[in-house]
Amino acid sequence: MKKGMIVSLPNSDLVTQYISYYSSFVEKEAENKNIPIKKLSGEDANMEEFNKVVSKLNYSFIFINGHGSENEIFGQREPLLKIGINHKLMKDRVVYARSCNSALVLGKACVEDSNGCYIGYNLPFQFYNDGNWSGNPEKDPLAGLFIEPSNLIPISLIKGNSAEFADKNSKQMMLKRINKTLQENSEGAFQISLAMWNNYEFLILNPQKLIENKWFFLLLILLEF
């Protein structure tokens, strides 16, 4: 396993455009840490390409953006990661899936007999965006409120923290934002709290394996990841 991150960046609709745009902040953190990155953007976010780069580069961290369900996560047009097809490629890697519903079935399968870890959601990932800026994520003043806390998961991992620390870090940011919104009685405070609370319920599968396998974990830290 080598130090490095593979990130899928589909942009087939507004949702994937937003989450892929926000992934650029994660990429910057990885660049600052000199972590090699392989991006699968747009049409390159497909299973064939994904399988190829995962096998060839053998990077330790996989960051997947895309629409998901219990059994699969989509790339640009088709499933990128699917149970029973290519989920075994995730063995011994750290996977963060910013997609809906993938944790309990697909995530669980990915960490079976593995020293890796899967962080994902068991509910549909939610966020609001400002309709006046739809399709313009860099100028949208609202969407970042919801998506930025999820960025803290891969960013914390890139900085060499454990999956559990990444979980805590991200959740604390959500809670602080909910708190601030409620204290200031901001417009849409209820909707913000509700959507963020929904995203609060992400799952980490197999974090103890990373701790049990101390040499692997130590190696990742020594490699700055």
Binding site: D13, L14, Y128, N132, L142
Partner: peptide, 11 residues
Amino acid sequence: NWKLSIGSSGS
């Protein structure tokens, strides 16, 4: 002006 993105339903 707020739009909700949830699942694959779009905005």
